[in-house]
Computed example of a mutant assay.
Amino acid sequence: MSLAESLTRDDIPCPSAQDRARNRHRAGVAWSKSAIRVILTNPRYTGRQTWNKQRTDEVLLDVNDVALGHTAVMRWNDRDRWVTSKDLVHEPLVDQTDFEAVQTMLTRRARTGTAPKRPHRSRHPYIFKSLIFCGVCQRKMQARHSHGVAYYRCRYPQEYALANKVDHPRNVIMREEVLIQPLDTWLAQQFGPLHRRHTITKLIDQATVGMPTPASKPQGPTTAELDAKLTRYRAALDAGADPAVVAGWIAETQAEREHINQRHNVPTPVDELSSLSEDQIIAIGLRLTYEPETRTVQAKIDLGLHRWDSVCVRGGT
């Protein structure tokens, strides 16, 4: 962690910043811990070429039905089976001595973690786990427990804040206990038996703001009128009219009729929202965003990203 922060602080471009053509999906403004780990575990970064890191195994598609044949599966070989060149083939990023020291350290950690772990229940359950988001960086806040107090924290290293040009405190902290009573009161008011239907109606009304409403009366001929046309065209064909001309009329009318059927079968967004059941709306996820400057928590229900009231809580950064 300290190495990634140090590289970011020293303004050394990270891998995604060096090769933007292949990393357009990444921000490229700071070093990540995963990038450091990849560099310290891949022998190629020592300046040497490596072969036989993987092998291709042929495995049965279905062990109960061998007639289905085999498929190729790529699997990693053990590190002692890798073949590494003795000579350098490019400029190294990691010294060979440092690289071997890192492998020894990781191997030691792996051995200590091979003992079977017994399933255990967390000693500190968190009521709002995965629901609290930081109002500064919009990242999910981590649940922590200290001295018998549950709280939620967003830790943002200063180096990352400078690289991303975000005015973010090093730690944003909110205690869990200060949110429980205000949120319980708010939920009881909005979704209680007396206000539940009113809240659901308001959700649907807000979700349909700005959406196109279905036309009150369809433009053009109806399917019944087009069916009457087809009947007349067939009668004209039986009476001796030019088959080529009548066939064109029939094809054009049938295409228009099919277009009307397709248009009527596509539900509008308003129809989809109006068909939501009470249970579906109640089951919609809740998102809580803590604003450290105002010490408020903004509760949102994700139905078209609608804002709700801010709940005042005590707390600080």
Rank of each mutant, 00 (worst) to 15 (best):
D227W: 13
E5M: 13
E256R: 06
E278Y: 04
Q138S: 15
E91T: 08
V63M: 11
H90I: 08
D238H: 14
T294D: 10
S275T: 06
L93F: 06
T41R: 10
G192P: 01
V313T: 02
D205H: 06
D78C: 06
G148L: 01
H195E: 15
R108Y: 09
P221K: 03
S85T: 13
R26C: 00
T41Q: 09
E291K: 04
K229H: 11
S275C: 14
I132A: 03
Q138I: 09
S16D: 01
S216F: 08
I132W: 03
D279Q: 04
Q190H: 08
R111S: 03
M105G: 04
L194D: 01
A115N: 09
A30P: 08
R232K: 13
K140A: 06
R44D: 08
R37C: 05
R314D: 14
V313R: 01
V178K: 04
V94A: 00
L230V: 12
R257D: 00
W186Y: 08
S275N: 14
R79F: 05
A110N: 06
K165N: 11
D205R: 04
L226Q: 03
D11Y: 09
A244P: 10
H145Y: 01
L303N: 07
T56L: 10
R24H: 02
P212S: 08
I132F: 08
W308V: 06
S216Q: 12
V83S: 12
E176T: 01
